[in-house]
Nucleic acid binder design. Structure first.
Lengths: 145, 145
DNA sequence: TGGCAATTATTAACATGACAAGGAAAGCCG
DNA sequence: CGGCTTTCCTTGTCATGTTAATAATTGCCA
């Protein structure tokens, strides 16, 4: 049994990294004007979409590790982008919500962000774009069939 | 113009993150037994495939940023996995090569690594697997048509 | 030849990823 | 009630991602 490794040029992990880099480049460029990071943008996006969330749910939907979210939330609170409140019924839990300042960033960049997404959809074509999302979902253990 | 943002559940950047996490989970599990990181594994893979490389080429093929590679190479040299030599013709340049100890890690894990890749290919199906790699390549600015 | 721009690599600074350990609160159960 | 486990969150540590600044060479060109 030879068990050869695939060439790195056709390696799935590396292909995922490079694709992500290609997709994030214009988004990072946009975010550089706002002073927030890509992860902070994700947190705002999720809060804007779902409303106030407990930390566990927020971490899951933002695809952030829990310890990372603890630190990210701390800096975002200092920036006035989110609020953190203790759940009075269960004081272990914490509820995070977006502030007006946070929502303002999302709103102001919505058009620009949507345009970036639209460009990628055009690059791949509508059908390929949906196919790609479906295939990626199959690699995600959290949503595998 | 409304310019709505897509739901985060169908967001391409987030889908890429989650897919990558799904793919890397078993690989990280394998690497935890070797004491090297995912990035160090990529460096060894590239060196094993292409032979000695200058730092710029190595960074490009490993999909690592230059400052990251500087640190990673430093730790890998200390671990005895690679060698660093100055190019005598152009002393700004540096040549990195894999050592026997480094090659040994690749060789010992080749079968296990190939099995992990094979499992994902089965999960998606051969055709889907190739389609996915092709679509991901189209998002990579370094290989876009 | 001498100075300036370009290339290559390193370092710095901050934020995050990943994993382990610790701490606080709640729930269970004798 | 009191101890035990579980859950939720925080902190610590090391490695990496990202951007900017700096250093060391080299190449160009007046």
């Amino acid at each position: 049994m030879t068990s050869k490794l695939p060439s790195t040029s056709r390696s799935l992990p590396i292909a995922l990294i490079r694709a992500r880099e290609g997709v994030m480049a214009p988004i990072r460029e946009m975010l550089s004007e706002t002073g927030i990071t890509e992860q902070q943008w994700r947190v705002l996006r999720v809060l804007s979409e779902y409303g106030a969330l407990d930390t566990t749910t927020l971490a899951d939907r933002s695809s952030l590790l829990f310890p990372s979210l603890t630190r990210i939330a701390s800096t975002m609170r200092d920036k006035g982008l989110i609020t953190q409140t203790r759940d009075q019924a269960d004081r272990r839990r914490q509820i995070i919500d977006i502030t007006e300042a946070g929502q303002k960033i999302i709103t102001e960049r919505a058009a620009q962000s949507a345009q970036i997404v639209a460009d990628f959809r055009i690059t791949l074509g509508d059908e390929n774009y949906e196919t790609l999302l479906d295939l990626l979902a199959k690699l995600d253990p959290g949503s595998r069939d």
